[in-house]
Amino acid sequence: MPIDAAKALAAEPRTGALSWDHKDVQLYHLGIGAGSPATDPDELRYTLESRLHVLPSFATVAGAGKPGVTGGLSMPGIEVDLARVLHGGQSLVIHRPIPATGSATATNRIAAVYDKGKAAVLVLRTEVADPDGPLWTNDAQIFIRGEGGWGGDRGPSALPHSRLRSSGGTPTEPPSGEPGRTVERPTREDQALLYRLSGDWNPLHADPEFAKVAGFERPILHGLCTYGITLKAVVDTLLGGDVTRVRSYATRFAGVVYPGETLRIRMWHTPESTRVAVSAVERDDAPVLADTIVEHT
């Protein structure tokens, strides 16, 4: 069996060093569409090193994306075909603001393995700290087609919100009523090619032939790119551009985005959190991100 759940869960955590500087942060911000208009003061805080603020979703690529989704698939007990892998969801908890230049230690482990029958779901957890203490905790939920059916724990019927999705709890209900704000964010045809320079080299996002083998008509945009675009929209639209107000951010990847499409981002805002739904405008509002919530001050 390609997945040995007991071995994966019992494996010793892997610890490694991460480092980044302002160039990494700026490249990530450009990869999620920052910098347009280029001279807009609100955009310069994402692109100009003298006034740089770090969007919290940068945590998903800090240190060139180590270990990242593909890196996590090399953990003990895990041996799968990359063409069967989809990123199912992502949770991020920010313990304090991320500096524009930093060095830290990342501890990575398999936090959960679920048997969904026709697929397996892995929860890859990364905890990052520097000498001053914890910085962030990332959970990536990885959906692997054709790797279920060994009789293991099915896990929750839907990955829950709360501070970390894999911690259990009750899934949130879909937003109801009209959103308080709706914005549209276009993506570029070369968006995935730019975003992958931050560390996610999965050929699904660049190689047409690989994309066809994986069942897609052409390369798709990284789910984490859409994740970053969406958080930036929430911060800029509802939080006054203040990245330090974000406490946690969780989503489920409900559908693909093809580079060049426009994202419609609907927001239901309260003082402590914002519920979000994202769809692809050109495909009759096909869902892209669902069960999405940003917790903030």
Score class of each variant (00 low, 15 high):
Leu52Asp: 00
Pro179Leu: 10
Ala120Pro: 11
Asp42Asn: 13
Gly33Trp: 07
Val25Gly: 00
Gln141Glu: 14
Phe58Val: 08
Arg196Asn: 04
Trp20Glu: 07
Ile265Tyr: 03
Arg45Pro: 01
Arg145Ser: 06
Gly33Tyr: 06
Val113Gln: 06
Leu44Arg: 08
Glu209Gly: 05
Trp268Ile: 07
Ala106His: 03
Gly88Cys: 09
Arg165Pro: 15
Pro67Arg: 06
Thr170Asp: 14
Ala83Arg: 09
Cys225Gly: 10
Gly169Pro: 10
Arg283Gln: 10
Ala290Gly: 05
Ser279Arg: 11
Ala8Met: 02
Val113Tyr: 09
Gly223Phe: 00
Leu221Val: 08
Gly241Pro: 05
Ser57Asp: 13
Phe143Asp: 11
Ser279Glu: 13
Gly33Phe: 04
Gly255Pro: 09
Pro186Ser: 00
Asp285Tyr: 11
Asp24Gln: 10
Asn138Glu: 10
Pro203Ile: 00
Arg109His: 08
Thr262Asp: 04
Arg51Thr: 09
Arg185Met: 06
Gln191Asp: 14
Glu189Lys: 14
Pro175Leu: 07
Pro271Cys: 03
Glu178Leu: 14
Val288Ser: 04
Ala211Met: 10
Thr182Ala: 07
Leu224Cys: 05
Glu261Pro: 11
Tyr195Phe: 11
Glu178Asp: 15
Ala254Glu: 06
Lys116Arg: 15
Ile78Met: 03
Asp81Cys: 02
Val278Gln: 09
Val128Lys: 04
Gly151Phe: 06
Thr105Arg: 10
Lys23Val: 00
Leu193Gly: 15
Gly33Ala: 09
Ala111Phe: 02
Lys23Ile: 00
Val183Ala: 02
Trp201Val: 12
Gly33Lys: 07
Glu173Ser: 11
Ile94Met: 12
Ala286Ile: 02
Gly255Tyr: 05
Glu79Lys: 11
Ala83Gly: 06
Leu55Cys: 12
Ala192Ile: 06
Leu55Asn: 13
Leu52Arg: 08
Arg154Glu: 15
Thr251Val: 15
Val183Arg: 04
Ser50Ile: 02
Phe216Glu: 13
Arg266Leu: 06
Gln26His: 07
Asp153Pro: 05
Thr105Gly: 09
Ser176Gln: 14
Pro41Ser: 15
Gly177Ala: 06
Tyr258Lys: 12
Ala254Lys: 08
Ser166Trp: 00
Pro156Gly: 11
Glu79Leu: 05
Thr292Gly: 01
Leu194Ala: 05
Arg14Ser: 02
Ala111Tyr: 01
Gly68Glu: 07
Ala83Glu: 11
Ala129Trp: 06
Leu92Met: 01
Ala290Phe: 01
Ile293Gly: 02
Thr101Cys: 12
Met75Gln: 04
Leu86Thr: 05
Leu231Tyr: 11
Arg84Cys: 10
Thr237Cys: 01
Asn138Ala: 05
Thr230His: 05
Arg163Gln: 13
Glu12Ala: 15
